[in-house]
Design a protein around this nucleic acid. Sequence first.
DNA 1: AATGTTCGTTCGGATTTACAACAAAGTTTT
DNA 2: AAAACTTTGTTGTAAATCCGAACGAACATT
Lengths: 399, 399
Amino acid sequence: MKRIYLQKAKTQIARPNTIRDINKQIVLNYVRDRSPISRADIARETELQRSTVSSIVDGLHAAGLIEEIGSGDSTGGRKPTLLRLKTGNAVAIGVDLTPRETRIAVADLSGSVLESETFPTSPSESFMTEKILETVAKFNDKYIDDDLAVGISVPGVTDQLAGRVRYVPYFQWRDWDIGNQITKKIGIPVTIENDANAIALAELWFGREEFRKTTNFITVMVAEGIGTGIVFDGQVYRGEKGAAGEFGHMIVGSNAPVQCSCGSFDCWEAHASENAMLARYHKLVKENISLSRNIDIHQLVGLANQGEAEALAVMKETAKYLGIGISNLIVGLSPQAIVVSGKITRAWDCIYDELSSIIERSVRQGLPKTKLLASSLGDQPTLIGSLSLVLAKKFASAS
Amino acid sequence: MKRIYLQKAKTQIARPNTIRDINKQIVLNYVRDRSPISRADIARETELQRSTVSSIVDGLHAAGLIEEIGSGDSTGGRKPTLLRLKTGNAVAIGVDLTPRETRIAVADLSGSVLESETFPTSPSESFMTEKILETVAKFNDKYIDDDLAVGISVPGVTDQLAGRVRYVPYFQWRDWDIGNQITKKIGIPVTIENDANAIALAELWFGREEFRKTTNFITVMVAEGIGTGIVFDGQVYRGEKGAAGEFGHMIVGSNAPVQCSCGSFDCWEAHASENAMLARYHKLVKENISLSRNIDIHQLVGLANQGEAEALAVMKETAKYLGIGISNLIVGLSPQAIVVSGKITRAWDCIYDELSSIIERSVRQGLPKTKLLASSLGDQPTLIGSLSLVLAKKFASAS
DNA sequence: AATGTTCGTTCGGATTTACAACAAAGTTTT
DNA sequence: AAAACTTTGTTGTAAATCCGAACGAACATT
């Protein structure tokens, strides 16, 4: 189970109500994880008294976080009253900005999307600011009865405290203060996070049961570049000023097929990203004129799945370098699992063997075996990531 | 300030006395950090009431953890009573096992060594078991009035829960259950940890003020191999089953001068350890027969400091590869600092420039600058590491 | 219909902190 | 030298919380 942290950045003293806050979070998370569940069950599992659980449940009910959904089956006595998270109420607005398109969605406590809107991402910072402000304001007005908060996922380095984006390599944006603007003009709280970290958070809170119980894992997001999200002890690790997770710029060899966004030809990202795959493919087909054509990553993966020789070769070569980087992460951090996300996972069968053979080497030395898995977040991992930024806070600091 | 974790592995509920436990730890850490300090000062800084602080201080005093040391200067009213950690009482036995020698020491709460004993490390597991049991028992009998605990630092993978060493590459020891043996035969608690992790813990709790306030850093220990200790968020990260920190086996290039203990020629360790340095030097001097002689790492560092050309060339070449690995860690984990320990740091001036120029590349992209520092633990970092295993527990889970 | 089981609630007891009042031990002002 | 002020540490009461026992409600089984 995830760790629920009781302390903020500074060493915080405990007051009489601290104790209630802690137990409130624990009960709320039991409702979330084991729903539908009764008060008696919660008491048994947490070892809190039934009376205490009842009191806490009253509070969560009054705060609109949970609801009763009738009675369960009797096991020889009074029927239990079942509880679950209150669904249907809008609580989070997620802004998922990717190089291609931007999606803004409203979701409830369970992470179900109630409504969403998509538009192409523009290279213009000011246009994006306007468009996002407009859409967020619209949603906020529509669900005026609910207390909404915004989570923003961007492919770059973010500064959560200052509420701004420090750098987005793809568009060369620097110091884009979208977070502040939203808070100032619409008056609702905003959390900004790097896309890979947001995905890690989403896997932790909304992924398969498997991940939700895993406290140490690393997400590897293969897209135009490579992003990594590190979950350590049930918590996303951000590093100094939120700049962690740039393992994409780890040096793994030389003479990559493309130049990395940082200018180097030695980075992992330059060897194993989608851009690297496309470059390899174009180099291969150039030698075979009849095949010469421009394709995107979607099509390349499709060709590989159909068994086209060149595409398969590209997948294998890329998997080799992807494997080297993953192997480095495994020996260094010994996580329970590596979760790969991105379009490349649609050709999982083509790359799995290559990946796992390289990764095997880390099993030397009595290191525990690390699982290698494809993401469980479906087609829009970063959207769920952006929503998680808001939802995880609800569960980790009982409001 | 270090984070003081309130929860164990499982989600733990809070009880009325939990609140006291939390505040007890906080007060104890204030005494440790800001000693000498008065009750009133602690109250001001923690925002606890003076009465509450008094009550907690009474408890810590009764437990023998702190003591009063007379009055301080008045600032216009009654003089404050100053408090500090109780020193002079034996609380920890540290067992520091290195490939060359093993040192066993007794220390008080402040980490001051009261007494120690050293003997050469033998490749025989059974001999080492006997010798360690004998020495620990002797110390335990001598300080019979005090409640001692043992911390063991070894150059290998450890299993803290099971109280045994899983693998020591240098001696090819496997599943050495030294921890259990001590607990069973002498009846005192034992904590076993990898040497690099122990050093990280020691820097965190007993290093320069600078590190003690740093919550994210990585220690790089250069010895026969390379070990890394990772501190995330004021806590040493162990990874799954304590196997983290093996970044020494990260792939950073090919054709290393020596074979890594894992058999590969691509590992960081094979490029930048003491063994790699010696191999480089021998290769250089072989071409110059007059210089041909066998030297150890101590002498090599000495020659470099005297300005011998070949030795300097070796240092620079090694620093280059050390820098690549460190750079990978920086871009991936964005720590506040990298702390290098090992004999190579005695030639800090020879390697610093080379290291920092390679590391500069990570300053691109608006990443915050990571400091590069030599260890502050003096000549016996691993001994202090082993003691820290016991002492950190005292402070992080108020006894 | 009687008995036993399970669920949720109610009430007194214990622990803890907060707050206010107070005593102790200084310094500064008159 | 006496009075007034300041700071420290202690004491006693109120409030919040959980625990544990007792209790009523609701159900199953005999």
